[in-house]
């Protein structure tokens, strides 16, 4: 079954979204240009506009957040008033999304006027420039990372991130619950948010904020997992390693899966191993998911049981003694 695609690659975010998400972490305050909060930031990187302030615009990363550090301040104050106003005007009308003043520097009257005139928000942070640059870069990478919401229940089991997906009524939550009782931690029930980590290029799964750590168990209702099973039974985020798809018998051909036939699925450009399991009355699905997880873990340790048995069989058939290599 295909995941429900909601949003893929984000092309841009608004200054307002950035401000809302980063306000606390980067101790930001809005000092001018509040009408420009809908300006779009198209590139995740943060720019130091030193060269632009000297009048060089042949190459200028105007799509990024512009940060004034100590160097920019010093340079601007070294200029004569007329030149400074001219440079600032040129800078503020170059379609930049917003400006951040680091080190809690005060905004000048001229800068305030230009910010309001060209609708360029000016934000101020107490942070030292280099720390702001690092923190803001990571935050922006995450804000602009491709995300996707899929229907599936995410757990962490024996260190492996497992997404259990399938149509409603297939027993996703029941399976997850059984595994939680066997020591798994619940990440999210039914709806799982996935995003690509900018550093590792792995898929990170997390719950939707409002419903997190709750599960809906048919016949019982909504339960709060940490209240019933303790805080060890939940987890806020986990790398997705394995997708287990619960299907109706007949939807899949599982008569012959040697090793799930090396099935993978691409999500947001990342290949994830996919195992399909037919749900049949009386079959202990949690048990099967547990084995699939263990087998995945074994493979990650470089031990492919199906392949090893095959190699051994071929060896025997060609006159060898069939010893494990």
């Amino acid at each position: 079954m295909k995941p429900k695609e909601r949003s893929g690659d984000k092309l841009s975010i608004t200054v307002g979204e950035f401000f809302e998400k980063a306000q606390e972490a980067l101790s930001l305050e809005l000092v001018a240009g509040g009408d420009g909060m809908d300006n779009r930031i198209v590139e995740a990187a943060i720019n130091r506009p030193g060269l632009a302030l000297t009048g060089f615009y042949e190459y200028f990363a105007w799509k990024r957040i512009q940060t004034f550090g100590y160097a920019e301040h010093k340079y601007l104050s070294s200029l004569a008033v007329v030149a400074r106003d001219e440079r600032l005007k040129e800078f503020f009308c170059s379609k930049i999304p917003c400006v951040v003043l680091a080190r809690n520097k005060k905004i000048t009257a001229e800068m305030r006027k230009l910010a309001d005139e060209f609708n360029v928000p000016v934000l101020r942070t107490k942070m030292v420039t280099k720390y702001f640059m690092n923190a803001a870069t990571i935050l922006m990478e995450n804000l602009m990372a491709p995300t996707l919401k899929v229907q599936g229940t995410m757990i962490e089991f024996m260190g492996i991130g497992v997404l259990i997906e399938g149509k409603s009524g297939m027993g996703k939550s029941d399976t997850a619950l059984s595994l939680v009782k066997k020591g798994a931690a619940l990440v999210s029930d039914d709806i799982t948010k996935l995003r690509v980590d900018s550093l590792s290029r792995a898929l990170l799964a997390s719950p939707v904020e409002l419903t997190r750590y709750h599960m809906e168990i048919k016949g019982v209702g909504i339960i709060h997992v940490p209240s019933l099973f303790g805080v060890a039974a939940v987890r806020s985020e986990k790398v997705l390693n394995l997708i287990v798809t619960l299907c109706n018998k007949g939807d899949i051909d599982d008569s012959v899966s040697l090793d799930g036939e090396k099935l993978t699925r691409e999500i947001l450009g990342v290949d994830v191993r996919n195992v399909k399991i037919a749900v049949v009355p009386g079959r202990d699905i949690a048990n099967v998911v547990e084995v699939a997880t263990l087998d995945y873990k074994l493979k990650m340790l470089g031990h492919d049981a199906a392949k090893e048995l095959d190699d051994r069989l071929i060896d025997v058939m060609s006159g060898g003694r069939g010893v494990y290599r």
């Binding site: 051909d253 012959v256 899966s257 040697l258 069989l313």
Partner: peptide, 17 residues
């Protein structure tokens, strides 16, 4: 050449089933 190893066995069963 390699006789009925895993892959042919799987194909065999797939057909037979």
């Amino acid at each position: 050449q390699y006789g009925i190893h895993a892959r042919p066995a799987a194909l065999f069963v797939k057909t037979a089933s």
